[in-house]
Write a protein that binds this DNA or RNA. Structure first.
Lengths: 361, 361
DNA sequence: CTGTTAGCGCCTTCAA
DNA sequence: TTGAAGGCGCTAACAG
């Protein structure tokens, strides 16, 4: 019911020709009632400091009384600018990004900027489509994930009339600005930590390792690191690398760990590409009665909050995601206001957070 | 570099008066080049079936060549409609909502509808502001969470010129449509399951239980259920209820469980208001060497994917979140196209998923 | 099926 | 500091 009533009511009400169909109040109404020019009302909203106090009061009063709010569409059309930041992330389910979003929100200071999300589903084509759509609306800026945009997309962003921040992955050659970390180095450090803790034969577990045939770039970099460091420590063994195209999850982690334990009993530790994988690996060990850290050491990636809660707690490579989102947003806002950004490429680094899962007794 | 170069370039390029400042191609350009009226081009995009095949071909060609895409702002202004659905969720970090979002996305069929998110931070005032802002843009529809909107907000949505779906919480009196579940009944069932499994003294753990002094409505309903059922089974004991204003998380679950075990040794089981709380509770038990399910039974809520992966696996009350998002979106789309919705209030129900954490041996 | 004519509501530009 | 005129790019409403 609710709505059938409603619709009928509206249709009926709109019948009369005189009153412009339940039209909302516009800037003209406000100007008339406040006895000022339209432009003054317009300025009242966009450049209040350029309006005299008296005018302000008069306008404010009418605005409140009429419940007026500027139309975003008209604004965008006339000014060729919208006051939102477009954010493209590859997944709404990978917890990695919820911290990034939190960071982005935490920086949403000062201005009345909106944030608009797009879910690219780990697909560069979708990413391009989303960005194209954002750009059509002349946003204040764009934050997008990774450094593997299609060349078309990169070109699009370069031409764009707004600032752009790439996040998650550090690159020397950003489209505009970047706040990320070096996944190769971070992985190296995580695995080195395993060796330093006395483990000899690390395995490598990863979810969402490829998309449409090609390897997910950040996973690919990490795998390179794994190859490199194992080669120098007794040899790289391909059978110790288990990955799947499925999205990263505890369940995937459990099943990868299960396979690894079955197939490679010589492995004494694992580097997990995401803490949810590590979590699943831990549970699999618990279920099998395999002691962590004594029989198997586990090092995760990203340092989810939960990794300090598990039993045993999980060692992880912290990727500073909150800070990343926050800094990206802050840089974007400052740059959009014309401020010079002295350092457009930021490598936020990482920390290996040692916890119980790699502390053999 | 990237951008400094760019900006200078742009500023310099815009100097000339003749060429309209790198202006994008418009519908007029397309019409001219294709030798058709503007309206035909317009129809080509909004009502293709009303354009003859020949015209279509001509237009398509030019559109591709010129790389034309309609301006959303101009469209919105002229038509008083935007092709997006506004989605308001209370949190980007509570995993509960990532499944809902997944469901919403999965239904994004047919049309080229965009989805626009707003994060209300569990704050009705923020929710209202977000909705107000969405409404200003004449969206196709709005999906919002819960049934505790401010009265002003409800009024706003009723007046709105678009369809509205409330999700998560079932109510007999929706603003327009609702897809939810009855949290009171679901909780009753979860706790009943504990009794049925042989536990006598359940505790009750909850995160994010209140906001600005008043209790979060869904938690409040669940607490009522707890009171009701414990009263009938040996008596309600207030000290068995532990909650906090902090966002729900495994860490919060761990700390609540720790308190509960310290303060109420007589408790033999817990009903956790979210699976992350249950997860934390489980870890705390493991750390203390308290056997789950033999010494303590655990029943969670929402049935996260991880609950079937833990050791022991976690019993949980499944809230069908994916389906909820999907159905909500589908109903919204159908309703927006004028279709009559026979059942505007849907109670999706719940399932108590029994797993190891409540199976005493 | 196609085209014409008027705006949509606001901001840019320029003049006062 | 304020205001007047014009147009942003598109679609509604009507005509052909």
């Amino acid at each position: 019911m609710g709505k059938s009533t409603k619709i009928i009511g509206k249709a009926a009400g709109g019948r009369e020709g005189a009153s412009p169909r339940k039209r909302g109040v516009t800037i003209v109404d406000v100007a008339r009632e406040a006895n000022v020019g339209r432009m003054t009302v317009s300025r009242y909203f966009s450049e209040p400091h350029r309006v005299s106090p008296e005018m302000k009061k008069r306008i404010e009063k009418v605005v409140k009384r009429l419940g007026y709010a500027p139309s975003p569409a008209a604004r965008a059309l006339a000014s060729k600018r919208s006051n939102f930041v477009g954010v493209v992330i590859p997944s709404v389910t990978n917890f990695v990004f919820s911290d990034v979003l939190k960071g982005i929100y935490s920086a949403e200071l000062s201005n009345d900027h909106q944030i608009q999300f797009g879910n690219a589903h780990y697909n560069p084509r979708e990413e391009e489509a989303l960005i194209r759509n954002f750009l059509l609306q002349n946003p204040t800026g764009i934050i997008t994930t990774g450094a593997d945009q299609t060349t078309e997309c990169r070109e699009l962003l370069r031409q764009a009339n707004c600032r752009v921040v790439q996040i998650m992955e550090y690159t020397e050659d950003p489209i505009d600005m970047v706040v990320g970390l070096d996944h190769y180095q971070a992985t190296l450090a995580g695995i080195q930590h395993l060796y330093d803790s006395g483990y000899k034969k690390p395995g490598f577990l990863a979810g969402r390792s490829f998309h449409g045939g090609s390897m997910e770039p950040r996973i690919s970099q990490r795998l390179e690191a794994f190859k490199h460091i194992t080669s120098k420590n007794g040899g790289f063994d391909e059978s110790h690398v288990l990955h799947t195209g499925e999205p990263s999850s505890a369940n995937v982690g459990r099943s990868l760990m299960s396979d690894l334990l079955d197939r490679c009993p010589e492995v004494d530790s694992v580097f997990c590409n995401n803490d949810d994988i590590a979590l699943g690996a831990l549970f699999e060990c618990q279920r099998r009665g395999v002691n962590v850290p004594n029989e198997i050491g586990i090092c995760g990636f990203n340092d989810f909050e939960i990794s300090s809660v598990t039993f045993p707690t999980l060692t992880s490579v912290c990727s500073n995601r909150f800070k990343m989102g926050k800094l990206a947003m802050e840089m974007l806002m400052r740059a959009s206001e014309g401020e010079e950004i002295e350092q457009p490429s930021v490598d936020l680094g990482f920390q290996v957070v040692e916890r119980e899962s790699t502390q053999r007794k």
